[in-house]
Simulated assay, not measured.
Amino acid sequence: MDKSLLQQQVLERLSEDLLQTEQAARAAHETATHEENIAENKYDTLGLEAAYLATGQARRAEGIRQSIVYWRQFRPCPYDASKGIQLGALVCLVDSDDKQQQLFLGPDGGSMKLVSGAQLVQVISSEAPLGKAILGKCEGDEVWIQVAPMRQQFEVLWVC
């Protein structure tokens, strides 16, 4: 599986998200500043609510822009067994029910599912609980994470 193709898919998805978020921010700003939405009394809050929404959308857009910068600068390195799993690793885990999942450990802001060939690949950050748990692990190692009241156990099948 080509990590650079996965990275390109992440960048494309982030660009789409940014476009949608910017459009939503513009629409909320237009609503907030439209003359028909000028408050006539203290209970007329449509313009104020739209302004809050526009601010939130603008912040979200800025976060996506920062994620795009991280992902453009990101250079996944080949797996080095002496260091274990690091940022940029493509990892296959298997759980106690023999269900496999493939993970691509990337920089912050890229949590999404991608398709590579016939495989589904979950992109996670090293700050996510599972991302933290697999850092430094090697093929054959066991990984545990606590999810609410349950403890999940995985084995690292392979890494590249």
Rank of each mutant, 00 (worst) to 15 (best):
A81N: 06
D141N: 11
P107E: 01
V94P: 00
L93P: 00
G131D: 04
E16I: 12
V94M: 02
Q122P: 02
H29A: 13
E142H: 14
A28S: 13
D17R: 10
F74V: 09
E155S: 13
D141Q: 10
W71Y: 12
L48I: 01
E139I: 04
T55Q: 15
K83C: 04
A128E: 08
V156H: 01
Q119N: 05
E127I: 12
G47S: 01
L5G: 06
P107D: 02
S82Q: 11
A81W: 02
S125W: 02
G56Q: 14
E127H: 05
Q100S: 02
K99V: 12
T45C: 01
S125Y: 07
S111Q: 07
K83G: 02
K132A: 12
V121T: 00
D97A: 13
A27S: 03
L157T: 02
Q8C: 04
K42D: 04
L103Q: 08
W71F: 15
L53Y: 09
A24L: 04
Q100T: 02
S96W: 12
Q102W: 14
P149N: 12
G140E: 11
R26C: 04
L105M: 08
A81Q: 03
G84D: 00
E62W: 04
G110T: 08
A89M: 10
L105F: 08
G117Y: 05
R75K: 12
K113E: 10
L130V: 14
K132L: 09
D95G: 05
S67I: 09
P107S: 00
V143Y: 12
D108M: 11
L18D: 08
Q66P: 01
Q8E: 14
S15K: 12
Q7E: 08
A24N: 03
G109E: 06
W71G: 06
W71E: 10
F154D: 00
G88N: 01
L90C: 07
K99W: 03
Q153S: 12
W158T: 07
E127R: 13
K99Y: 08
L87V: 03
L19C: 09
S126H: 14
A50D: 00
G47H: 00
C92E: 15
D141L: 04
A148H: 13
R26M: 13
M1K: 14
T55K: 13
L157C: 10
I38T: 10
R151H: 11
A51S: 15
A24S: 08
L18S: 05
I68Y: 13
I38V: 15
K137I: 15
I38S: 08
V91F: 06
L120Q: 13
P129Y: 08
G63A: 14
S67E: 06
A118Q: 06
R72T: 12
E62H: 07
E142K: 07
A32C: 03
Q100V: 00
S82G: 09
G63F: 13
M112W: 00
A118D: 11
S15M: 10
M150Y: 13
Q8W: 11
E22A: 02
L14F: 09
G88Y: 06
L46P: 01
S111R: 11
A24E: 02
V159R: 03
Q8T: 11
D2I: 03
I124M: 14
E30V: 00
L14P: 05
L103C: 05
G110K: 10
R151G: 01
E35S: 01
Q119S: 05
D2Q: 15
L90E: 09
R75G: 06
E16L: 10
L14Y: 15
L87Y: 04
Y79R: 06
K3W: 12
E40F: 03
A28G: 00
